[in-house]
């Protein structure tokens, strides 16, 4: 059940067998660990540098990739301005697309 692309090929079955092997190795390593975890004790609390966390603290979705979004901010701001939500802009960009496609067909 593999599919070829001319040079490479992709076979999910082979991949699944390999993935199972890797998982088995991981599981074997995990079994070597010490079992000191106890349910219902302080160990269940999230650990953050030993600080006491306020009730309901957690990592929200907006916190993920904060640095990434911050680094790309100039680009993302520009893209956000591009998606202005103004219908006249939508139509203008449609005309741009139309002119580009007509030009490409005429010239190429």
């Amino acid at each position: 059940m593999r599919i070829g692309s001319g040079e490479g090929f992709w076979s999910p079955i082979v991949w699944a067998i390999l993935a199972l092997g890797v998982l088995a190795i991981g599981f074997a390593i995990w079994l070597q660990g010490r079992r000191t975890y106890k349910r219902g004790t302080e160990q269940e609390e999230p650990f953050l540098s030993g600080e006491r966390l306020p009730e309901g603290a957690g990592v929200g979705a907006t916190h993920l990739y904060w640095g990434f979004a911050e680094a790309l901010k100039p680009l993302l701001m520009r893209l956000g301005a591009f998606h202005s939500g103004f219908l006249g802009d939508y139509v203008g960009w449609l005309l741009v697309l139309l002119v580009i496609s007509i030009l490409v067909v005429m010239l190429g």
Binding site: G80, H83, S84, G85, F86, L87, G88
Partner: peptide, 10 residues
Amino acid sequence: DAGKIRELKG
């Protein structure tokens, strides 16, 4: 005003 009806942007 289409310029003000822009809740869907970004």
